[in-house]
């Protein structure tokens, strides 16, 4: 294990920002710290960087007690949410800064120039050496910030909401590119995000935080398909709730039977949750009886809104090619879950 975090806790004015956090990261892994605002993800990242300190707990990085090291000795590459580029320095000077700060161990001029050229090529900004941050677009600034962080040859790369300030198009593009850079450098990388899609798409493993506690630490697949709590289920996608009769691994609603994934030994009537894409719509009187209140077209699929007899709203999405074109708003339908979760 490259990084081991044990029992990390931190109180802010009486409220627990982090509550007994423990997890470990393998060398070269790409980890996302995911959670809603206030979940403690940024506090955790800042502790790794040495910008914040816990009240309790340990951070161990390759056998070193990280908490005993001040920021400058941790050799961390940090990319700030605002990028924090030095506005009065050119791109080249920004990237060289960390190397210039080494005092006696400062590399030779040619070495520094070589590093600048190499990194600008890596982040695809060749020819931008003499530009100032104010002359760059948001995406370009982000890449300079990354190059600057990589210049000190860090042992750990930390990114705080790396795509937070960018528009949707640039975001997607940079996301792929960041993954590419990670694979190329093999750096252990940890990034903070509140966007579950980003985390699921990019990271090897995701630390999903809720109110300062780890809700789940798993791969994207596990988090999507085997959520450990209702919070995890709700945070990573939309879902619906319904009451079902449960017997062993099978649940049934009004003649519609479907498996319960994270089965317990529970038996009886209980609320289950199912994904909006894990259901079918039929015009038979089966499953959850509901009335369609809206049909919305999107690229490749259709979204249905319905309301059940108890007044609860339901949302189902179905690929367009499977759509039964006879359905219309106002119809009474039966909604048939295909798979559900019990928490």
């Amino acid at each position: 294990m490259a990084l081991t975090i044990n029992n990390l806790s931190k109180q802010f004015a009486g409220f627990a920002a982090l509550n007994d956090i423990s997890f470990s990261v393998k060398e070269g892994e790409f980890i996302a710290l995911l959670g809603p605002s206030g979940s403690g993800k940024t506090t955790l990242l800042r502790m790794l960087a040495g910008l914040d300190y816990p009240d309790k707990g340990t951070i161990d990085f390759k056998g070193q007690n990280y908490l005993s090291l001040p920021v400058k000795e941790r050799k961390i590459g940090m990319v700030f949410q605002s990028y924090a580029l030095f506005r009065h320095m050119t791109v080249a000077k920004n990237i060289a800064f960390g190397l210039e700060m080494r005092g006696k161990n400062k590399p030779k001029r040619e070495e520094i120039n070589e590093t600048i050229t190499r990194l600008l090529k890596l982040v695809q900004l060749e020819g931008f050496e003499k530009r100032y941050p104010a002359q760059l677009s948001g995406g370009q600034r982000q890449r300079v910030a990354l190059a600057r962080a990589l210049a000190i040859n860090p042992s750990l790369l930390l990114l705080d909401e790396p795509f937070g300030a960018l528009d949707a198009m640039v975001r997607k593009e940079l996301r792929r590119w960041l993954r590419h850079i990670h694979d190329e450098t093999g750096l252990t990388t940890i990034f903070v995000t509140h966007d579950q899609e980003e985390a699921l798409d990019l990271a090897d493993r995701i630390v999903l935080l809720e109110g300062g506690k780890i809700a789940q630490y798993d791969t994207a697949d596990k988090i999507i398909n085997h959520p450990k709590s209702e919070f995890v289920f709700d945070f990573v996608g939309s879902g619906n709730a319904a009451d079902a009769d449960i017997k062993g691994e099978i649940a049934s609603i009004n003649g519609c039977e479907f498996p319960v994934v994270n089965l317990t030994n529970f038996s009886g009537r209980q609320k289950v949750k199912f994904r909006n894409y894990d259901a079918l719509i039929s015009n038979e009187e089966k499953g959850i009886k509901a009335q369609l209140t809206g049909i919305f077209a999107s690229t490749g699929f259709l979204r249905f809104e319905a309301i059940d007899n108890g007044g609860h709203h339901l949302e189902i999405i179905i690929p367009e090619r499977n759509f039964d074109h006879s359905l219309k708003v106002g119809d009474r339908v039966g909604i048939l879950p295909q798979k559900a979760y019990l928490f």
Binding site: A49, G50, L51, V71, K72, I76, G77, M78, F80, S82, A84, L85, F86, R87, F97, G98, M101, R102, R148, A149, I152
Partner: peptide
């Protein structure tokens, strides 16, 4: 303080 904190992470005194 972002720029100054960034400088500290890059090893500045």
């Amino acid at each position: 303080t972002d720029e100054e904190v960034a400088a500290v992470t890059l090893g500045a005194s």
